[in-house]
Design a binder for these strands. Structure first.
Lengths: 227, 227
DNA sequence: CGTTCGTTAGTTGTGTACATTTAATCGACC
DNA sequence: GGTCGATTAAATGTACACAACTAACGAACG
């Protein structure tokens, strides 16, 4: 809320997403308070807020831990993102101004350069910025808030598995293709590419899906299949 | 977290969803603390947690208020729910046990009776239970958590506009039809009905959509249109 | 030797006092 | 008479002290 609590939230979020705290690691209030030079009160506030963002799990009388997502959870997250961000891309195709699209293209181009240079930290940062920018273009705070949480969870993945070269190129191309679809004011196209983009990311990060898995949404249920 | 804080959260949630606090109404910490017989600390905790659930807005140094959703936000919420709960219904068609489906049918039947008798409070409660039960059948805590927030926002609507008789009958029939689709193990069918169910609820609650609205997802982008 | 119960250290939950910020009211000046 | 500014009251943010709970260690008994 106030500057102290805000700073604690920002710092902890950065550290968790940066991998300085491993999934499942305990986050003691007193330890954090000493380390950050504040009292327990703003630390408690910050942990509650991060719990709201889905980054930590809090159990009564047992404290806070960094969240651990199951493989199935992560599959569902990308499934949902594919649909919701697909809708956002469709909306952006009609709502975005030329300047908005320029801005998005700028991010996508920078993303390609950093990707080819192998600067992964920049890639992760710009990728998050690209998606959040696009979701905002849908003009819906609900979309931004809903997907924001899911994106955080997705980012926690990055320590698990890195994209191979082919997947990285696919991802870069998707970002650029979506910009093209927006310029063409083609909502169908934009939604379809975004859908594919997130399902391909899921495949790259999680590997082949187990067919006998309790399927939440089949790969075959893609919304847009005009042809 | 502890019993006191939990009780405050439950009570405030009930009061907010029950309409005892109007959207936009201020929630003072001291006032609530006195009224509930606890100190400010658990009240603050509770307000932070309700903020996480999307029921209150907290601004630094300015306190907590009951959330106010814009009409556009609510349209987006139902749009997202249509997709995500549609996916959940599809997954449930393969994952649900016969006992699960029986339980769901029991809820749907009770819902029909209460609806015909005009007991709206029971209708709202059972409707929330039906959706949350079905989403849980998808076996994904992510779906449950994501949609849970959106459902809360939807419930806040109920003071705005009541279903007319035709809409109420449609809603009841949808719930029963989804049960039938689950029994048939037909994921496509279940998803399609759920999608229609939520878009029809949106229409009933929000009235006709303004065509020139910055469209986030067109009515025409329904995923399942086999015929 | 294993199990169980009690004690103890550490952690989280709660209450309260103090600091800081916000907003409104009153007064003075233009 | 109106507007700008300062003072004051009330709210939230922070810190610290105490209470309650958890879990781990150790001892005693079977």
């Amino acid at each position: 809320m106030t500057a102290a609590s805000d700073r604690v939230v920002d710092r902890l979020r950065e550290q968790i997403l940066g991998g300085e705290y491993a999934p499942g690691e305990r986050l003691g209030e007193v330890e954090l308070a000493e380390k950050l030079g504040v009292s327990r009160t703003p630390v408690r506030d910050a942990l509650r807020r991060l719990s709201a963002e889905g980054l930590v799990d809090i159990t009564t009388n047992k404290g806070a831990r960094v969240v651990e997502y199951l493989r199935a959870d992560l599959e569902h997250i990308f499934q949902i993102r594919a649909h919701v961000e697909g809708l956002a891309a469709r909306a952006a195709a009609t709502a975005a101004s030329a300047a908005d699209i320029d801005r998005l293209e700028h991010i996508a181009t920078a993303l390609r350069e950093h990707s080819e240079a192998g600067r992964l930290n920049e890639v992760y940062r710009l990728n998050a910025e690209y998606h959040s920018t696009l979701n905002n273009l849908a003009g819906s705070s609900v979309v931004t808030a809903t997907v924001g949480q899911l994106i955080h969870a997705s980012v926690l993945l990055r320590t698990l598995h890195a994209f191979d070269d082919a997947a990285r190129r696919r991802s870069v191309n998707h970002h650029l293709e979506i910009v093209a679809a927006l310029r063409a004011r083609d909502g169908d196209w934009a939604e379809a590419v975004m859908h594919a983009h997130l399902l391909s990311a899921r495949a790259s990060l999680l590997g082949p899906r187990r067919v006998q898995a309790p399927a939440y949404g089949d790969p075959a249920d893609t919304p847009e299949e005009p042809e």
